Simulated assay, not measured.
Amino acid sequence: MPDEKPARLSARNVTVAYGGVVANDDVSLTVGSGEIVGLIGPNGAGKTTFVDAVTGFTEYSGEITLGDTRLDGRAPHLRRRAGLSRTWQSGELFGNLTVAQNVVAALRPGGPATLWRDLFGRRKTGTDELVASTLHAVGLGDLGETTARDLTLGQQKLVGVARALVGNCRLLLLDEPAAGLDSQESLDFAERIRAVARGGPGVLLIDHDMSLILGVCDRIYVMEFGKVIFSGTPEEARKDPAVIAAYLGTPMETTHG
């Protein structure tokens, strides 16, 4: 196991129940600053439910902290303000707006009047610089004025990451960001996520692209029936009998560098 980095996100004994159905059962995990941690498992294992709990979109028992800040009981927008940000499985862009305008729309939650002013009015230089630096971080620095509908699918996915990353992002949760990408786009996406993590934020990555997960993650957690059944390095995950039986099917090698 690699040396643990200072924990940015810590979830302890998180349990989510819908009536008699337990979707998350005593789940604990950590994500360190600058670390990429994978969360994998079969469909219905409880991965997205866990992200919903962490980001405040569903009720849970247990304890979630970001740095020294307890997040329990806080609304989703207050968790975002504390530095916790996520992407969504169906994160559609505003197709008629430019890439930069799409990112600005995520930066300012001040209501329709503020949004209209920021998108079409005179923005502050600081906002422009922040958007430009965020787009550069995800490899889209030269596409700020491109209309979102003209992007490739891989580029659209990276705009979604930029919208989550812009501003005070200390922990980035990516829920199936590589869905629909071909092999080359997935390789490119992996490189961008590595670059984002090198900039400081921790990353929790959920995806079914196992080459991506095994190639880019520092550590991996595996869930089955709402429980964590494994935590360890990608190399350990490839060979673990419980992981192979529950999810991988056969031992895997990575194609990501």
Rank of each mutant, 00 (worst) to 15 (best):
V37F: 06
V37W: 04
G38E: 03
G38H: 05
G38T: 07
L39I: 01
L39Y: 00
I40P: 04
G41M: 07
G41T: 04
N43L: 10
N43W: 04
N43P: 07
N43F: 08
A45G: 10
A45C: 10
G46C: 11
G46P: 12
K47M: 08
T48P: 05
T48C: 11
T48H: 04
T49P: 09
F50K: 00
V51K: 01
V51T: 11
V51L: 15
D52T: 00
A53L: 07
A53V: 09
A53E: 09
V54H: 00
V54T: 02
V54N: 01
T55P: 10
T55S: 13
G56W: 01
G56F: 05
F57Y: 12
T58Q: 02
T58A: 06
T58L: 04
E59S: 14
E59V: 12
E59H: 11
E59R: 13
E59K: 11
Y60W: 04
S61G: 14
S61D: 14
S61P: 09
S61M: 08
G62K: 02
G62R: 03
G62D: 07
G62V: 03
G62C: 08
E63N: 14
I64Q: 03
T65K: 09
L66V: 09
D68T: 13
T69E: 13
R70V: 15
R70T: 14
R70E: 15
L71G: 05
L71M: 10
L71D: 02
L71V: 00
D72N: 13
D72L: 05
D72Y: 08
D72G: 12
G73K: 03
A75Q: 08
A75F: 00
A75M: 05
P76W: 04
P76E: 08
P76Y: 09
H77L: 02
H77E: 09
H77G: 01
L78R: 15
L78C: 12
L78T: 13
R80E: 11
R80A: 15
R81N: 10
R81C: 04
R81L: 13
A82Q: 11
A82N: 09
A82E: 10
G83A: 04
L84D: 01
S85P: 10
S85I: 07
S85Y: 08
R86T: 00
R86W: 00
R86E: 02
T87S: 07
W88H: 03
Q89I: 08
Q89Y: 05
E92N: 15
L93S: 04
F94I: 13
G95A: 15
N96I: 09
N96V: 12
L97W: 00
V99E: 01
A100L: 02
Q101W: 01
Q101E: 15
N102L: 06
V103T: 09
V103R: 12
V103L: 11
V104M: 06
A105C: 08
A106W: 07
A106K: 02
A106G: 15
L107T: 05
R108Y: 15
R108N: 14
P109C: 08
P109M: 04
P109H: 06
G110S: 14
G110M: 07
G111S: 08
P112L: 03
P112K: 00
P112D: 06
A113R: 12
T114R: 14
L115V: 02
L115A: 10
W116V: 14
R117L: 11
R117H: 15
D118Q: 09
